[in-house]
């Protein structure tokens, strides 16, 4: 049963220089089932972030419809946790207050907030940093706080927009392992935007390969790889080769 349905969605941005505007997404259809880990992969300008923003409710389709759990998306909401490219934490709040921000919005008392936050801070491996301010933590740690904040809402879906883009390779790999553990532990559904082929193959149960101008889905690939995934294995590289061929301007081979 599909948790997220994207039904023939197009998004046209107004552009004063072009009478017809810019077609960022063109007739995109996609479904995500519960407990899937879908990676949206594509070059800059393919509309992958736009698509994610529509699921989050920050943006709206020009044509078509987006539904989550059967409900059409109209505005951002706590049923869809977003982890942003920059952590976007409240710099004036300590880590635990940031993690429990959702509860603050609901008017939950301090003691319960602290207690709830504690569990998720532990889950993302930040125990001992509860009272630090974001400015006192590294980029990777802040990103973990952002993940904990999204997890605490116990959302239907977690939407991630290149959350590890600013991290170095080593930290990124650690975060991948963490994320997979968290995804399994929390049994959540994740939509993850990236432009890294390796990243998408390391994480996703499915990879949607997108092409730019106009943004379309070239192919939706189910990834059948053992975890933990070995990026040097032959099967991994077969997938990679196939995706590379899809991303090239002139498609070379369509079949795998």
């Amino acid at each position: 049963m599909a948790l997220i349905t994207i039904d023939r969605v197009s998004r046209i941005f107004d552009d004063p220089k072009r009478p017809n505007g810019i077609r960022a997404l063109d007739n995109v259809s996609l479904t995500v089932a519960r407990n899937e880990f879908l990676c949206l992969l594509g070059p800059s300008g393919c509309g992958k972030s736009t698509l994610l923003n529509m699921i989050a409710g920050f943006d709206h389709p020009t044509e078509g419809a987006v539904t989550v759990g059967g409900q059409p998306v109209t505005a951002p909401g706590a049923d869809r946790g977003v982890v942003f490219q920059q952590a976007n934490l409240m710099p004036w709040l300590p880590v635990w207050e940031n993690v429990a921000f959702h509860l603050k919005m609901r008017g939950v008392g301090k003691d319960i907030r602290r207690e709830k936050a504690h569990k998720f801070i532990e889950m993302v491996g930040l125990k001992g940093f509860e009272n630090h301010f974001p400015s006192e933590l590294s980029g990777g740690m802040n990103q973990r706080v952002g993940i904990a904040r999204a997890l605490l809402m116990n959302p239907e879906v977690i939407l991630m927009d290149e959350p590890f883009g600013a991290l170095d390779e080593q930290t990124k790999m650690d975060m991948h392992a963490e994320l997979i553990r968290i995804w399994r532990e929390s049994q959540s559904t994740i939509v993850f935007v990236t432009h890294g082929i390796d990243e998408s193959l390391a994480l996703g149960t499915h990879v949607a390969v997108m092409s730019a101008r106009p943004g379309r889905i070239r192919e939706l690939l189910p990834i059948d790889l053992e975890r933990p995934r070995d990026p040097t294995s032959k099967v991994f590289n077969d997938y990679k080769r196939h995706i590379l061929s899809l991303l090239r301007p002139e498609p070379v081979g369509e079949a795998i």
């Binding site: 951002p76 977003v82 904040r149 809402m153």
Partner: peptide
């Protein structure tokens, strides 16, 4: 930050 706030409900 406002987007993050809207996301948390």
């Amino acid at each position: 930050l406002l987007r993050a706030g809207a996301m948390t409900g």
